[in-house]
Amino acid sequence: MLIIEDLQVELAGRILLKDIDLEIRPGDTHVLFGPNGSGKTSLLMTIMGYPQYIVKKGRITFKGTDITHAPLNERAALGIGMSYQRPPTINGLKTRQMIDICAKRKVDAGEMARSLNFEDFLDRDVNAGFSGGEIKRSELLQLTAQNPDLMLFDEPESGVDIENMALIGTTIARILEKETPKGGKNAKPFVQQRSERTKMGLIITHTGYILDYVPADKGQVLLNGVLACTGNPREIFQCIGQLGYEECVKCTI
């Protein structure tokens, strides 16, 4: 479980996030809405542990451990992982090697890449000259290898063409254990399958496309550094679409 209490975060002397309370239970996936510059990425970077995001107040607890000031790699070791929107290029490091780093062992990267249709990129330097969609597939591949318990997705749809959207969407649903429960004679009851899910997700989306693939449990709107409302993700998305962020937030307060 991820618990964020009364969080206040500063970047380069400016307060970006304040009064943030958030709780993600095992098996739950939340969707984060908000206009550009509202602090969505900052929240994800703060949870991941980027040192330039300074926590001035409040606490982040993950699996019962206070990680408010833990370095990035310790959070990764505890089971937090992130899919970035614009990750840096690592020259000379092959994507194949990066997959091994993520998995902490030698893995069959080819096998893993197949489902993401990404085999041809394994011998290319990490993110070097990748298009927006290729970056997203590379990030998902790394996350699959890392297999963390809490996954942070920063706009997984941005730059992805229609054709690849389904691939991205179903992959995220799969690694977050949000696929439709298995049917058939020998399958466990749906309720049990659902209750056995442990993966947690926090997804930033602008377009809402991801909601077509991932049945999210909760939606939240971040506006001017404050988490303004919580509710059914579809309903919130619809409200934003019709009334805009400002109005939507007003109607729920």
């Binding site: 542990g49 992982g81 840096p88 000379g92 993520c102």
Partner: peptide, 28 residues
């Protein structure tokens, strides 16, 4: 680049490992 070190650290390796991975890549 600190950004590259952080990126690799978020995949679970230490700062020293991240730095040496980047340097090795630079040389290859």
């Amino acid at each position: 680049a600190q950004e590259e070190i952080n990126y690799l650290m978020s995949r679970g390796i230490t700062e020293e490992e991240a730095t040496s991975t980047i340097v090795r890549g630079f040389l290859s």
